[in-house]
Design a protein around this nucleic acid. Structure first.
Length: 317
DNA sequence: AAATTACACAACCGCAGAAAC
DNA sequence: CGTTTCTGCGGTTGTGTAATT
């Protein structure tokens, strides 16, 4: 594809350098060269390999496309769930997210988020940046002060949860072993076995949150508490169902109605496109108690484990 | 069937931090 | 210790293709 000339440091456009999509022949040359010599200095690589590309372009092509340890194709529901949860923890830190999603590149995750997941969350009434329900400021709370209070209560709880999670991620980064992944060597989210033993059962809040969302389908009646928040949900006049709708960012007045009505209308909302299947699968509750933390497999413990207790053998998939 | 629009994703840009000099 | 160079990251855009009109 044609681009305007670059003013980037070290990559100033040089006459004769090819741009745009890579050909199969170029891919072959680059792959063969790196497999034989390693990439070494990216800037010097194109000349050595006989490619009319800048080093930056070669690096990008290798990392995002040609590397052998890349899984291509559709994202699984589990991967999507993980991305969403990691995004809630890490924000737009795509490379950090990629470090916890095997065989996926930051670029791929970023693209998938921007083209799919962000839109799905928005469609569900969830702000993709804050991961909080979007409450229309212009929409009155339909005369229900109680519900307005509840929504604020939920927002406070959610805010506290996110803060606690962010704090935990920061803390976990301060005491970490080197990441063996050469691609993401800067990422330091892996914990040693000793560190795992003293790891606080921090993100149970996330599980709790998932429980709330899953409550849309199971309607828990018990009070929900979060270890990362002093707030708890009122048990009177505010069922799991109504919170769930609030979580979905639906009109609060409808929440009250829906808590006492069949799910028909709600289901109709979800029936739109493929959201229902995705949502049902993506937000089922995991169970931290099932983790075998003494397993030798737990030598590295990552942020992924915080958000997805059993990512690879989940019953979801 | 052609034109238009929406979508997906590869690739580029510019910046910041690390490393080398 | 300051400067230069290199690398990696996140944001953005252009293009090909599918879907719709």
């Amino acid at each position: 594809m044609r681009r305007r000339s670059s003013t980037n440091n070290g990559d100033k456009e040089v006459a004769g350098l090819k741009r745009g999509p890579w050909t199969a022949e170029e891919d072959e040359i680059l792959t063969a060269y790196i497999q034989k010599h390693g990439h070494g200095n990216w800037r010097a690589l194109p000349e050595k390999a006989g490619l009319q590309r800048c080093g930056k372009s070669c690096r990008l092509r290798w990392i995002n496309y040609l590397r052998p340890d890349i899984k291509r194709g559709k994202f699984s529901l589990q991967e999507e769930q993980t991305i969403i949860q990691l995004h809630a923890l890490l924000g737009n830190r795509w490379s950090a997210m990629a470090a916890h999603i095997p065989k996926r590149t930051d670029n791929e995750i970023k693209n998938h988020w921007n083209t799919h997941l962000k839109k799905r969350l928005m469609k569900l009434g969830i702000d993709p940046m804050t991961h909080k329900p979007r409450v229309e400021s212009s929409a009155p709370l339909s005369g229900s002060t109680k519900n307005g209070s509840d929504l604020r209560h939920m927002a406070q709880w959610e805010s506290a949860r996110l803060e606690a999670e962010a704090r935990l991620v920061r803390d976990s980064k301060q005491a970490v072993a080197p990441n063996p992944n050469p691609i993401h060597h800067k990422n330091k989210n892996h914990l040693t076995l000793d560190q795992i033993r003293v790891r606080p059962r921090c993100l149970d809040a996330l599980t709790a949150w998932q429980s709330v969302v899953a409550g849309m389908f199971s309607f828990p009646s018990q009070e929900l508490e979060s270890p990362t928040s002093i707030l708890s949900f009122p048990s009177v006049g505010h069922t799991g169902t109504s919170y769930a709708y609030g979580e979905m960012g639906l009109d609060s007045s409808k929440c009250v109605e829906k808590s006492n009505q069949p799910l028909q209308e709600f289901e109709e909302t979800l029936m739109d496109s493929d959201i229902d299947a995705w949502f049902d699968d993506s937000f089922r509750v995991g169970n931290y108690e099932n983790i075998d933390q003494t397993s030798s497999d737990a030598l590295t413990y990552s942020v992924l484990d915080l958000v997805n207790p059993s990512p690879y053998d989940s019953y979801i998939f």
